[in-house]
């Protein structure tokens, strides 16, 4: 992949547009709620897993 060669980086993760839309839904649907708070690492992990993103790449720092 050209970008990876340019930045000398490993490819990382490749996901579908539908999965990316799922991430957008999970992260932003409630962002205008007055009592919104950011996801805990455990909540983020659950959201990733629900979209099939279960590899170590998606592990959040504790």
């Amino acid at each position: 992949m050209r970008w990876c060669r340019l930045w000398r980086r490993k490819p990382g993760a490749v996901i579908s547009l539908e999965q990316t839309m799922g991430l957008a839904q999970a992260w932003y649907a409630d962002r205008l709620d007055a009592d919104w708070r950011s996801k805990t690492p455990a909540e983020a992990q659950t959201a990733f897993a629900s979209l099939g993103l279960r590899s170590g790449f998606w592990r959040m720092p504790c």
């Binding site: 490819p11 990382g12 490749v14 579908s16 539908e18 990316t20 839309m21 592990r59 959040m60």
Partner: peptide
């Protein structure tokens, strides 16, 4: 997405 053709590359691991 009306035309969900293509893939998304995420370069940096979540941590």
């Amino acid at each position: 997405i009306k035309n969900p053709h293509g893939v998304v590359h995420i370069a940096v691991a979540a941590r």
